[in-house]
Amino acid sequence: MRALVTTARALLITLALFIFLFPVYWTVTMAFKPATEWTPTSGKIYWVPDEPTLDNFRRIFGGTPGGSDSFLVSTPINATDSIVNSLVTAIFGSLLALIVGTFTAYGISRYRAGGKMLGFSILQLRMFPPIAVMIPVLFLWTYLQLFDTRLGLILIYGAVTFPFVVWLMKSFLDEVPREISEAAIVDGCTQFGAFRKSVLPLVKGGLATTALFVFILNWSDFLIALVLAGNNVVTAPVFLSQINSAATGQEFGSRAALGVILITPPLLLSILIQKHLVRGLTFGAIKR
């Protein structure tokens, strides 16, 4: 009986791993496949590129694919701008969420701001898929002339990740006994001084974790950038979806190459903060 349970468990885990890891594997191998191997020819599926090449990477940064005799003829594209857009909007959006969110979390944690409901209401915000309100936001943004601007995206990214910051930072701030900031106040600090000098140093780790977590979220966003930005501000995920050519239609390889570039930062950062992620996410769950 035990053996059956263990085998079933192993099977389920393998299945889950497969479902999650297969697309990654496929993307990585696709990034190195020459155009000829992008789609199956004569029934052969290229599990691993027969002739690995860096052409796709050259292609997305302005190079001409394949050379003059390549069957691909298309205008050169350059993903650099889109990557820069992604970086700028993700970094500043995250910063906005961090600053506003951390102060909010401090207010809720220390001073029970908003009573019992505020903290929970903020969390509920995030349960709500942002895409559901993107059309109304689009109208509002157009009115405010924020459509298709970096600032517009930064503001939305900040708003959408703000609940995460509050949730995570509150649990880290709850860990700091209130007497520590009170001691600082008695020692002569202002409220803000007490926060800065006695509490902040103690949640440095939590802050870093939250920052990385939120950055990953914003960096990976596709739908919001698609709706709220047009031709001027194209972030990398949107850019990726638009890599086509007249000859071949969707350029799988080129897309995969950009994809590989895009998933590397989140992957690396996740590994870095992995320990702290689990801690932060499960913290509030345990009542001391």
Binding site: P177, E179, I180, E182, A183, A184, I185, V186, D187, G188, C189, S198, P201, L202
Partner: peptide, 19 residues
């Protein structure tokens, strides 16, 4: 405010600055 009263307090859990 506390700092203007010229008093000092030791809290029950001491509240030393751990860092």
């Amino acid at each position: 405010v506390p700092s203007a009263r010229n008093v000092s307090i030791v809290f029950q859990n001491l509240a030393l600055y751990p860092d």
